[in-house]
Design a protein around this nucleic acid. Structure first.
Length: 567
DNA sequence: CGCCGCCGCGCG
DNA sequence: AAAGCGCGCGGCGGCG
């Protein structure tokens, strides 16, 4: 059926009701239907999985559909795709020039209470009128079609939008979390839970030992300036209180102070209050923010989802009858760099499962830890220290890979824009950066102005150097997620006890967590092996999708177990 | 009292 | 054991 609808565009009519417009592959309108929210949910429930849903903001629409028990496979998120297309160096900027209002930040699903009283300060809202939505979608298609990199951009927009669907599903499903295990970790580490306003026993104990070593019974340990002064009085000439510097001093206060800092960090970031607020019902439901980082990585909002300490991983526990498939990619970024640069020598080092061991085996550096810091230094732009010292060896061994990141840095220092493998471009320099460079280029520029300009140029060079690698790695990860999501949806159901993940995921394997290069799938035990296969197949498919036949794979560290601890 | 910048530290 | 990218968050303290 060549005239079957390919896109389903969702917006609002003049009266505020939902309007659904189906478009054929050539963009012509096939049908136009008025609906309400319930009607939209029913339309979605019976829609073909091949239909791509187009709307202004996935969170706005998909949260409702998921709540109604509907899962969709494909989308085109106009806000996220606009952000990519508007800045991509592969897109003719005027193509989106007619767009108005599509640069808005992600809107809140529920307006905050103050918004009701303070209308003037409301953030500009995203257009949702069906005609504006249709027009913006048409601009996107035209912009992609006119690009000389249409295939890659199409892939990027599809992956970004699949990520937006998944972000909502991850929120709806939640990460299965054991109150009991978390509480036990807290008690084992911090001691018994204090009464309201009190201090856990081991923190109190460590604090007492710190104060004794300082010879100051009243020393304030939680205020950085006060702690620094107390250290000076005790004869520790530290310039900061970060743990790397403190560890350099030989003084009896150091050991208990580092212990105190570690314990207070756990208590304040992920202690009993966090447990009650974020995971009290047995699910941790972070708000993921796809595209929330300039490089294309996801950010998160609330609960510190992307900073969960490894120490608490044992609290991630499958429901009864379920298990977890936990997988992460080994050395994702250097592998992506090797593939982008077409660097066969680096690809050769990556042949086994451990790229860093491969570097040692190739005689590039002497030890695995050296290989790791050297590679990180190459991608981050290290110039000094152990890492910077080793980078020249990499430049000799992997000239193509190093030329790619060195070129990205040179472009950035010069005020230019760099672009990822699939077409996400770095933001242009801001007005502050440009004026600093201009002031320093004048004949009457002071030495201080020149120094400032050089420093900010190098800072930007390190940013663009890393942007191409971090951003392209994020694209591989998105493709992996999108491929995996499709495969999981195709798996059968399995009879298992009901879970707290919502109707959409009852008896179904589903993604439960994503962290840059790592995923957790929550699955009925009977499906675990099939899920593991799907995770591996998805990685292979993502690699082929991005890099074709380039001889490099992305090996996974994959575990099937009831908790998400590393060992 | 709320807002904001700084510091420190968790994650990749 | 760092000095080199990207984040979010809690606590503090200065400010209005």
């Amino acid at each position: 059926m060549s005239d079957a609808p390919r896109w389903r565009v969702v917006g609002r009519g003049p009266s505020g009701g939902v309007v659904v417009v189906d478009l054929a592959a050539d963009g012509s309108e096939v049908s136009r239907t008025a609906a309400d929210d319930a009607g939209l949910t029913e339309l979605a429930r019976t829609a073909s999985a091949s239909l791509r849903w187009v709307w202004n903001d996935t969170r706005r629409w998909y949260r409702m559909l998921l709540g109604g028990g509907v899962r969709l496979m494909r989308a085109h998120d106009l806000r996220l795709c606009h952000a990519i297309l508007r800045t991509s160096a592969w897109v003719d900027a005027p193509a989106l020039g007619a767009a108005r209002g599509w640069d808005a930040a992600a809107p809140e699903v529920e307006p905050g209470p103050q918004a009701l009283f303070d209308l003037e300060t409301l953030a500009p809202t995203l257009p949702d009128g069906i005609d504006e939505v249709l027009a913006e979608f048409a601009r996107h298609r035209a912009a992609v079609d006119a690009s000389s990199h249409a295939a890659r951009l199409t892939l990027l927009l599809a992956a970004e939008s699949a990520g937006a669907l998944l972000a909502e599903e991850l929120h709806a499903a939640g990460l299965p979390w054991s109150r009991e295990v978390h509480t036990r970790i807290l008690e084992d580490t911090l001691g018994t839970r204090p009464l309201a306003g009190g201090v856990p026993s081991r923190i109190a104990d460590a604090g007492a030992r710190v104060r004794a070593a300082l010879g100051d019974e009243r020393a304030s340990l939680d205020s950085q300036p006060k702690l620094l002064r107390a250290l000076h009085r005790a004869g520790v000439p530290a310039t900061s209180t970060n743990r790397w510097e403190l560890a350099e001093y030989d003084h009896p206060v150091i050991a208990p102070l580092l212990e105190y800092k570690k314990l207070t960090r756990l208590a304040s970031a992920n202690g009993w209050a966090w447990l009650e607020e974020w995971a009290g019902d047995g699910r941790f439901r972070p708000v993921y923010v796809p595209g929330g980082v300039v490089t294309g990585r996801w950010a998160s909002s609330g609960g510190g989802a992307l900073q969960l300490p490894r120490q608490l991983r044992p609290a991630v526990r499958a429901d009864p009858g379920w298990t977890l498939v936990v997988a992460d990619v080994a050395q994702l970024e250097p592998r992506v760099l090797a593939a982008m640069a077409g660097d066969l020598a680096l690809a050769d080092a990556a042949r086994g499962t451990d790229l860093y061991a491969g570097m040692v085996g190739g005689g590039v550096v002497a030890t695995r830890p050296e290989a790791k810091v050297a590679m990180l230094g190459a991608m981050y732009g290290a110039t000094t220290g152990d890492s910077g010292r080793l980078v020249p060896a990499l430049r000799r061994a992997y000239p193509r890979a190093m030329a790619l990141v060195d070129e990205a840095a040179a472009v950035g220092e010069d005020g230019g824009v760099v672009t990822t493998w699939l077409g996400r471009s770095s933001p242009p320099p801001g007005s502050w950066w440009t004026s600093v460079q201009q002031e320093a280029s004048g004949a009457d520029a002071s030495a201080a102005e020149e120094t400032r300009a050089r420093r900010s140029a190098r800072d930007r060079g390190r940013f663009t150097r890393n942007f191409v690698v971090q951003g392209s790695a994020a694209e591989w990860a998105l493709a992996w997620l999108a491929e995996l999501r499709t495969r999981l949806a195709a798996l059968p159901t399995a009879a298992v006890p009901a879970v707290a993940s919502g109707a959409v995921f009852a008896e179904r394997a589903h993604l439960a967590f994503f962290l840059h290069d790592e995923i957790i799938v929550h699955t009925p035990v009977a499906l675990a092996d099939a899920v593991a296969d799907a995770v591996r197949e998805a990685a292979t498919a993502a690699t082929t999708l991005l890099f074709g036949t380039f001889p490099l794979d992305f090996p996974l560290d994959l575990r099937i177990r009831e908790d998400a601890a590393k060992d």
